[in-house]
């Protein structure tokens, strides 16, 4: 079995590339602190979301100083909140999203950002983002969810701290 010297060299370079790719992603996870959506969100009964303490009244909840929880229900073909009422959070805050689905699989994408997750019935996708200055963002469903999938959209408004009049969700 003859393996040409150049080929051995390329094998080494290819392995180096692969290790480099894994190292970059590991840096992103550890150094830049980017966590993946995992199983921390737990499960819910998709048939009984109305009885859920938070998904029963989805929206923005204050969880600490400059910290907010946003509960979002994705359903054919709207986000609650997001579609009829925008998701409103103050600038320069830490926002944790909890996203689930009331029916089929949906996607939840804050357009032009890295905030992006699947919404799977029975599962809660939880992820935290840092929002900076005031800006409006679009939200869309990026997984096919039925015949009006293309109409499933919403907005998120990051408002200046002094104009923010408190979270809308809960009582």
């Amino acid at each position: 079995m003859e393996i040409h010297a150049y080929e051995k060299f390329w094998l080494a370079a290819a392995l180096l590339l692969i290790v480099g790719l894994i190292a970059t992603v590991s840096y992103g996870a550890v150094g830049a602190g980017i966590e993946m959506i995992g199983d921390e969100g737990g499960t819910v009964d998709p048939e009984a979301l109305d009885d859920h303490p938070k998904f029963g009244d989805p929206g923005v909840y204050e969880s600490g100083e400059d910290e907010y929880d946003v509960y979002v229900v994705a359903e054919q073909f709207a986000f609650r909140p997001g579609t009829s009422d925008p998701i409103e959070v103050p600038a320069n805050s830490t926002v944790t999203f909890h996203v689930t689905s009331a029916d089929v699989i949906h996607g939840f994408e804050v357009v032009g950002t890295n905030a992006n997750t699947m919404a799977i019935p029975g599962q809660v996708a939880t992820f935290t983002v840092e929002v900076d200055g005031p800006r409006d963002y679009g939200i869309l469903c990026n997984e096919y969810c039925g015949s009006a999938h293309h109409a499933m959209e919403g907005t998120m408004e990051v408002v200046p701290e002094d104009e923010y009049d408190g979270p809308e969700g809960g009582d």
Partner: peptide, 10 residues
């Protein structure tokens, strides 16, 4: 293909 799926740990 399921990097952004909830319910599968990191």
């Amino acid at each position: 293909h399921q990097y952004l799926d909830p319910g599968i740990s990191e």
